[in-house]
C-alpha cells in the first residue's frame, strides 16, 4: 500500500484518478480499522489532511463552509458554528470517543455511508450541501444524495467531497440531534434523528426539516415532517404525529444493535424529543 499526502485538491484528485483502488484518508478512524481487519486493502491511501481548504471552517455571508477533513473536535471547538448549528455540532460531537473526535472527519462520517452515521441526519435537517471535486470538475449536491446504500456513495471514480455548506441561520431558528445507543458513549447509533426548525415571531413553526438515521439503508429525509410541524407550536399531539411518521418512514433491519420493531419506535421517540429541543432552542434564539 502506498501513502500519498497531496497539498492541493487538484493533486489529490489526480492521485485518486491515477491509482486504481486508492482510498481517501481523512481521520482514518474507519479506514484504519478496515485496513487492520483486512476488509480494506487499497493500493494507496491519499491523505487529504494536508490540504488547507479541507481543514478549514469559514463563516461567509451565505453560512458556514466546513472542510471535509475537519475533525469532530474542531467543529465542537468552533464557538460560532456551535451557536448557529448546535444540532450539527452535537451530532459531530457524538462520533466516538474524545480520541476519535480528535481524528474522525465530517467528510469521512458522511462518505463511509454507514446508515448509522450520526452527522448525516443532522446535516440533512440543516439542508447541507456537499461540494465535490473530481476529474470532471466541481459540483454540489444535497448531502442526502451522497450515500446510496450501506458503504455505497454516488461519488464517481476520482471524486472527493471537499466541503459542506451550511446555510445562513435565519432568526428564531435552531436545530438538534439525538441518537439512541445502549451505553452513554462509544456505540454506533441504533437510531438517530436531526430536526431543524424556524419559527414565526409568535412561536409558530414556519419551516421544519427532519432527517432520520440508522433506520434504513441510508439516512432519510422525513418528508412528512413539514406537513406535521409547520403551523404548530410543537404541542404534544403534533409531536405524537411526528413520532408516528418517523416510525412509519423507517425501513430498519434486525441486527446485533437493535430490532426492526425497536428501531421504529425509538426513531419516533428521538424525532419527537429532538423537535422539542430544537423548538426550545429556536424560541431562545435571536
Amino acid at each position: 500500500m502506498q501513502y500519498q499526502s497531496p497539498a492541493s485538491i487538484e493533486e489529490a484528485v489526480a492521485a485518486l484518478a491515477s491509482i486504481g483502488g486508492a482510498r481517501v484518508l481523512a481521520g482514518g478512524t474507519d479506514l484504519l480499522v478496515q485496513l487492520r481487519s483486512g476488509t480494506a486493502s487499497p493500493a494507496a491511501v491519499i491523505d487529504v489532511k494536508n490540504i488547507a481548504a479541507l481543514r478549514a471552517i469559514t463563516e461567509t455571508a451565505d453560512g458556514f463552509r466546513i472542510g471535509a477533513a475537519v475533525c469532530g473536535a474542531e467543529i465542537t471547538d468552533h464557538a460560532a458554528l456551535v451557536a448557529a448549528w448546535p444540532g450539527v455540532a452535537e451530532a459531530a460531537g457524538l462520533i466516538g470517543s474524545t480520541q476519535v473526535q480528535g481524528r474522525a472527519s465530517l467528510g469521512g462520517n458522511v462518505c463511509n455511508a454507514s446508515p448509522a452515521a450520526d452527522t448525516t441526519p443532522a446535516l440533512i435537517a440543516a439542508r447541507a450541501v456537499a461540494e465535490i471535486v473530481g476529474p470532471n470538475g466541481r459540483r454540489s449536491i444535497p448531502v442526502e444524495q451522497i450515500a446510496t446504500g450501506p458503504g455505497k456513495t454516488s461519488l464517481a471514480e476520482g471524486e472527493i467531497v471537499v466541503s459542506f455548506l451550511l446555510p445562513r441561520r435565519p432568526a428564531r431558528s435552531a436545530d438538534a440531534y439525538l441518537r439512541l445507543i445502549p451505553r452513554t458513549e462509544m456505540d454506533i447509533a441504533v437510531a438517530g434523528a436531526g430536526v431543524n426548525l424556524t419559527l414565526d415571531a409568535d412561536g409558530t413553526i414556519a419551516d421544519a426539516r427532519v432527517g432520520i438515521g440508522a433506520v434504513a439503508p441510508t439516512a432519510l429525509v422525513l418528508d412528512a415532517a413539514p406537513g406535521i410541524l409547520v403551523g404548530t407550536k410543537c404541542d404534544e399531539a403534533t409531536l405524537a404525529k411526528l413520532a408516528e411518521a418517523a416510525g412509519a418512514a423507517a425501513r430498519p433491519i434486525d441486527d446485533k444493535r437493535g430490532t426492526v420493531d425497536y428501531r421504529r419506535k425509538v426513531v419516533g421517540v428521538l424525532a419527537k424529543r429532538a423537535a422539542l429541543i430544537a423548538y426550545e432552542r429556536a424560541k431562545g434564539a435571536r
Binding site: Y3, G28, L32, T98, V100, G102
Partner: peptide, 9 residues
C-alpha cells in the same frame, strides 16, 4: 489533540 495511536498511520 488527544488521539488513539492505533487509528493513526
Amino acid at each position: 489533540r488527544l488521539v488513539c495511536g492505533c487509528l493513526m498511520l
